[in-house]
Design a protein around this nucleic acid. Structure first.
Lengths: 344, 344
DNA sequence: CTGTTAGCGCTTTCAG
DNA sequence: CTGAAAGCGCTAACAG
């Protein structure tokens, strides 16, 4: 056992069937029953397993795809990657994980490296604001699925969520509850922009004027959100509702709340885009009452649709296709963290 | 641009240097300066990139390794995988992630699949109680690094932490503070066993007799820890100190605390093996005072040492080696969650 | 449906 | 240090 591994040539000799026929059989093409039996017996006897490297050399398919993400320790990604990997491996594909550590240049390098490595496809959660590196892959006929991002001038498949409309709807609900003085903290990513746009549209459509002094944009990873949130809280004309456009900001709000021992929603109402407790082993957060009202992204679904779309692309390597954007629905959960300011 | 990619043959023609020499040059062997220049120029002109599949066919090296883990959404793994991947990719290796979803049989299948795929090495956090599937890899000359697990009858490299001695030390500290009535909840894994062994030895060495009725073993994933913890709390002779042998149990304790609004340490003192807030975006836990006293595993280091050891193995494929076990040191943090029952 | 015949692109003896 | 030659194991026309 172990050591000598047999090749298709050994199977040819053992079975008396030519290796082309064996190869065809191995790829699911039909052969005569007689040959099938001979081949199967020989394979079993020799413990033959196809060498995927040799196979890939001619066919230039590696049955390997890359998943390129900014940070696997960001709780957003593991559920996505988990489901993505599950679907891909169910279909015989392996997933190379590439964590570029939020370094936009490193992301570009990794994409190139994976392309050189001849992966069959890529899913990427990009931190770059330009899509040239993505375009380079596409040009080399390497399918890419973008996660959570859209480039206006790039014809690339993508999976996103309804950032704009979900925020719009959620904020409308809050306005119905009587909130007219709304503050927000938001980040510098595409998704933050969409969400804040939804918030502003909701205000305008309800006859309110967003106050620029109460919409604080921060460079995530550089500025701690606590300060900005505190600033909002300490205004003479402090907002009655705080919108946090992503989970970091929501966690910032949670920290401020715990630090100052705030009463939510009496001191301030809170609405967060994203779920703070995305990890199974962080569900204890639900015991800290009231939970923040939030807009939850379907992380597992994102992974699933990314896999399905990518599989479609890699299985039909030569078919020309129109890029599609799959926009998934979020779920809005209104909790006691948003006060009812008027009787309804 | 894109499309036609050049081969080593093109470089041969362009440079006038034979492809063997080019190949050698590409692998870092020395060539004459004259040839080096010619080759470099041709490569640049043709945008030549080596095809790793063709390269791997002859050399049977894929510069790809597998990381096989039970659940990437378990907050224990992302920091390990992140660092592991960083180190490997720094050395030109890619990491195939395989999440077997805590399914021991699936783990075996994945190992076989990765072996068939000709990865150069594996790091695996196994859920199996027998190591036959690991042995199969080793027998095929595929290096494996085990994470957090040791098989007595298997000569396999591994990275672990000082489960036994760290628990021993920590419990000794608590005993010094006056705790003689100690309860524990623990899981069914190797690591849980080591830890509980450390606890019991600490008690015995200090003249205490561990009470079996207060040492509750549970099947994780099947039983919720809250019940067992509640049981301990509700005993007439309830322990003054609760030891939780892993993070799930620690989270269980946190839940019970939040549910019952317990005063820690007045109602009970708590000591947890593992850090609840392993995720960067879950550090808000530190605002819930007092933090649990805990024994923290150096997750990033685990990933780093796994990578270093695996690199050593894959870079010297033919060298026979003695399996080593690298045992890393945990960090004990005593907080206000453990009461001082006697003046010191 | 089958076997023959060329390779895929690179590595690796082997002489020189 | 170099080049010629012989594959690595499998796939993919091609003719039958």
């Amino acid at each position: 056992m172990g050591g000598i591994l047999s090749t298709i040539l050994d199977v040819e000799k053992e079975s008396g069937v030519s290796k082309s026929t064996i190869s065809r059989f191995l790829h699911g093409n039909s052969v005569t029953d007689e040959n099938r039996v001979k081949i199967e017996q020989a394979i079993k006897k020799l413990h033959y397993k196809m060498n995927p490297i040799a196979s890939g050399l001619k066919s230039s398919k590696t049955f390997t795809v890359g998943a390129v993400i900014p940070d696997i320790t960001d709780s957003f990604f593991p559920p996505i990657i988990k489901e993505f990997e599950r679907c891909m491996s169910e279909n015989g594909y392996n997933v190379i994980l590439s964590d570029y550590g939020n370094d936009a240049d490193r992301e570009i390098k990794q994409l190139e490296m994976l392309s050189d490595k001849k992966v069959d496809g890529l899913v990427v959660a990009t931190s770059n604001t330009k899509g040239d590196h993505i375009r380079a892959c596409l040009n080399e006929n390497l399918p890419v699925i973008l996660l959570d991002r859209l480039f206006p001038d790039l014809d690339c498949d993508s999976i996103t969520v309804d950032n704009f409309s979900a925020t719009y709807e959620a904020v409308c609900e809050c306005i119905k509850l009587g909130h007219t003085n709304i503050g927000a903290v938001y980040g510098h990513f595409y998704t933050d922009g969409e969400r804040i746009r939804g918030l502003q549209k909701a205000m305008k459509d309800n006859g309110l004027k967003p106050d620029p002094d109460k919409m604080l944009k921060l460079q995530l990873m550089e500025e701690a959100p606590e300060e900005s949130i505190a600033k909002l809280l300490d205004m003479k004309d402090a907002p009655t509702l705080l919108f946090c456009s992503n989970v970091y900001l929501g966690i910032g709000a949670l920290k401020v709340r715990l630090q100052r021992n705030l009463n939510i929603p009496n001191d301030i109402s809170v609405l967060v885009f994203d779920d703070i407790a995305t990890f199974p082993n962080h569900d204890y957060i639900s015991y800290i009452k009231p939970e923040f009202s939030n807009i939850t992204q379907p992380l597992t679904e994102i992974g699933k649709y990314a896999a399905e779309l990518l599989l479609e692309r890699v299985k039909n390597p030569h078919r020309k296709y129109e890029a599609v954007n799959i926009e998934l629905k979020t779920r809005f959960k209104l909790t006691g963290s948003v006060a009812k300011l008027i009787k309804t």
